[in-house]
Simulated scan of single mutants.
Amino acid sequence: MPISYLSPLLDMTTLHLEIEHHTQYHYETAVRYSIQELRLKPPNSHGQSIKNWKILTPIKTKTNQDAFGNEYQTFVQDAPYKSMSISAKGEVISTGGYEYTDLESAVSPYYLLQQTRLTIPSPEMMAYFEKTLPKKADLDSVLELASAIRNTITYQSGITNFATAAMQSFAMKTGVCQDHSHIMLSLCRAANIPARYVSGYFFAEDSPNLASHAWVDICTDIDKSKWLSIDVTHACITDNRHIRLAVGRDYYSAAPIKGIRSGGGQEELSARISIHQIKVL
């Protein structure tokens, strides 16, 4: 569904949401060994509180915290398998918000000035967005850039994937929220503004294809670690429909599920995310 058909963003009422996220993997041949890393538990912070959250995996996981303050789980499978299922389910009470101070991350905002393979801009990108590059990290400037990206990169699923770089999406003039976010990261960093990728969920009953979502955090004050959250796909600030999972330098460092494996051959992946409103408090 084209993004222009989405309903306007909600007011700042509290939402009580139930989220289910199921991922199923099937392999052509047996996987001999694999390591999985999951960022599937929303944090109790930034305008959201979590209730009854459970992550189901084939074997027991180990929980850690990364340098960005994200909680993550890992598990290793060393017995052969040809299918694997990972599920997360729970409730979130969301009040929303788009400005906050982050004291949990050990990563300096200066580190987020560095481009990654997924965010390196092309000369054509820089020339195209030259007039809308922010001179400073204020709300009006970053929203103007987000609007320019949204209007340039047509929202269309199935064309790009997790490995598509910002310059590739720009060249095709198409992509999804991940691509919008990578281009925003690319241009903000080029303008000497620290920015980071946010993975999460988006509650939109009329557009379930947007349940898995991504946006960006812009650092407005490096010394005080103050951040501003911008949904580039909607060209707006984030609100109570945005549920944060993790932050990172790009999609790969904040991905809900990632891993490595030995064997398995061709992989077939299916994912299903449902978000239902329980009640408005």
Rank of each mutant, 00 (worst) to 15 (best):
H234V: 09
S199D: 00
R241Q: 14
Q48A: 09
T160H: 04
S169E: 09
N70D: 09
S262Y: 08
D239T: 14
L245W: 00
G47S: 01
P134S: 05
P256R: 04
G69F: 03
H182N: 09
R241I: 06
I55G: 04
Y25K: 04
R117S: 08
A190M: 01
T152W: 02
M125Y: 03
Y197Q: 01
P121Q: 01
R196F: 14
Y197N: 04
S141R: 00
Y251R: 00
E18H: 15
T23Q: 06
I149Y: 08
V216K: 00
L139K: 15
F68L: 02
F75L: 12
Q77C: 13
M167C: 06
N70A: 05
G248W: 01
E124K: 13
R241K: 10
E130P: 00
T14G: 07
L210V: 03
D66L: 07
G90P: 02
I159C: 03
E20D: 13
R241V: 05
Y98C: 07
I93G: 01
N70L: 10
N240G: 07
P43K: 02
V142F: 00
P256H: 02
A163M: 13
S49N: 11
I183E: 09
K89W: 06
I86F: 10
F75T: 14
H213Y: 03
A235N: 11
D217N: 15
A254G: 08
D11M: 03
I243F: 02
I59E: 12
D206E: 15
W227D: 13
A254W: 01
C236S: 15
L145P: 03
S253C: 04
S225T: 11
L17C: 01
D102L: 10
V247G: 05
V31Y: 12
H22I: 00
W53V: 07
R249G: 14
W227V: 13
D231S: 07
A255M: 12
L17A: 01
L210E: 03
M84N: 11
Y27R: 04
C177Q: 13
L210Y: 06
I273Y: 02
L112A: 04
Y110S: 13
E267M: 07
A246S: 11
H234E: 13
A235I: 13
E99H: 14
K60Q: 15
P134M: 01
K224M: 07
M84G: 02
L269W: 06
Q114I: 09
V76C: 05
L143F: 02
L133I: 03
W215H: 03
Q115R: 06
A165V: 06
Y100V: 02
C219K: 03
T164G: 06
L40W: 02
Q277S: 13
